Simulated scan of single mutants.
Amino acid sequence: MSTPPSAPREPANPAFVALGGGHGLAASLSALRLMTDRITAVVTVADDGGSSGRLREELGVLPPGDLRMALAALCDDSEWGRTWRDLLQHRFATDGPLDHHSVGNLLIVALWQLLGDTVGGLDLVGRLLGARGRVLPMAAVPLEIEADVRCDDGTLAVVRGQTHVAVTPYRIEQLRLHPADPPACPEAVSAVRDADWVVLGPGSWYSSVLPHLLVPELRAALHETPARIVVTLNLTPDDETQGMRAVDHLAVLRAHAPELPVHAVVADPGSVDDVGELADLCASTGTRLLVRQVRRGDQSAVHDPLRLAAALRDVVEGYLGDVGTPAGR
């Protein structure tokens, strides 16, 4: 973690890349679409449960579910866009083989088979939705997540599969991918290198956010990009992060990617148990901390798109005020 470069490149319409998966990534995208139309979602492809897991196992394709959710979050805010979004998200309820499959998952996989092109198929669905941005997989092959966990008796055990890692009751100590050195999606690598800002989180820390740092080409791009990196912390712990504090999330991020520069952290005050400790940690690494209410007004554990967009806009504008000051990555 270090201080940012001294001058922004696209102050009026910055290019954002958001990394993650599932509902957390959708929350980021719902906020970013209020700020810019230069958005790229880079989505984890390790899901092995539900409709995505079944299609992955039966057809050998990337799990489409998180990709579908990202596309839905970027849909055009019109009757056309919202109708296609709702169709994409529709799930069948039946006693037959279609049970719990979503229309969007089937559509995406069908386009992959017709076109023979993963990125081309996603781009075509994006055009159908009038998507405000682009959605890409983080890797070119399906991945399996594996974690070393510390059991209650102090012994180490191995948990395999995203669905199992996401619900483990034990403390996760180390994360791995299989295959260990998967090929990254080239378009995703290019997007990170060309970005002005990269957003990590919110989302399942171990099963959705950190896996991006374990894809070698994507990790290298994150280290080498001139973009500034902002981390959005979760509102509440989930199964895989029970007992972890806000500072622990940043510590785990640093343990898996020690050289990754983090330029800003956005946290909701209700999710931080010790703001002073978090502020001290950020100050020690040259990271700006913005503590702002970004959850819904009803205090549910859901990010409010307008509030999160306002917080991210304040982060961007704060760096615009640094033009001419000496800084570096």
Results as ranks from 00 to 15, higher is better:
residue 65 G to P: 04
residue 149 V to N: 00
residue 118 T to N: 06
residue 129 L to D: 05
residue 107 L to N: 04
residue 88 L to W: 02
residue 148 D to R: 08
residue 70 A to L: 04
residue 70 A to N: 05
residue 97 P to E: 15
residue 68 R to Q: 04
residue 105 N to F: 05
residue 112 W to I: 14
residue 68 R to C: 08
residue 160 R to K: 07
residue 157 A to W: 06
residue 56 R to C: 03
residue 86 D to E: 09
residue 77 D to S: 14
residue 90 H to S: 10
residue 81 G to K: 05
residue 113 Q to A: 13
residue 94 T to S: 12
residue 115 L to G: 12
residue 150 R to F: 00
residue 160 R to M: 13
residue 78 S to H: 09
residue 91 R to N: 09
residue 81 G to F: 15
residue 114 L to H: 14
residue 99 D to P: 04
residue 133 G to K: 09
residue 59 L to T: 14
residue 76 D to P: 00
residue 105 N to Y: 02
residue 145 I to C: 03
residue 113 Q to M: 14
residue 160 R to V: 11
residue 140 A to G: 10
residue 150 R to C: 03
residue 129 L to W: 03
residue 144 E to M: 02
residue 92 F to W: 14
residue 120 G to M: 10
residue 87 L to E: 04
residue 58 E to R: 14
residue 66 D to Q: 12
residue 116 G to L: 12
residue 123 D to F: 01
residue 66 D to V: 06
residue 58 E to F: 00
residue 124 L to E: 11
residue 100 H to I: 07
residue 89 Q to F: 01
residue 90 H to L: 13
residue 61 V to H: 07
residue 73 A to K: 09
residue 127 R to N: 07
residue 55 L to H: 00
residue 66 D to K: 03
residue 124 L to D: 04
residue 95 D to G: 14
residue 119 V to H: 15
residue 106 L to E: 04
residue 102 S to V: 05
residue 132 R to I: 12
residue 113 Q to C: 13
residue 74 L to V: 13
residue 141 V to A: 15
residue 162 Q to G: 14
residue 70 A to M: 12
residue 149 V to Q: 02
residue 83 T to A: 15
residue 118 T to H: 15
residue 140 A to M: 05
residue 111 L to Q: 08
residue 53 G to P: 01
residue 79 E to R: 10
residue 102 S to W: 09
residue 166 A to L: 07
residue 79 E to V: 07
residue 127 R to L: 15
residue 60 G to I: 15
residue 82 R to A: 13
residue 105 N to P: 03
residue 93 A to G: 11
residue 148 D to F: 01
residue 165 V to D: 06
residue 69 M to D: 03
residue 76 D to L: 07
residue 125 V to D: 00
residue 143 L to I: 07
residue 81 G to A: 06
residue 150 R to M: 11
residue 116 G to H: 07
residue 148 D to N: 05
residue 110 A to H: 06
residue 142 P to S: 05
residue 131 A to E: 02
residue 136 L to E: 08
residue 94 T to A: 09
residue 95 D to L: 07
residue 80 W to V: 08
residue 166 A to M: 07
residue 130 G to H: 13
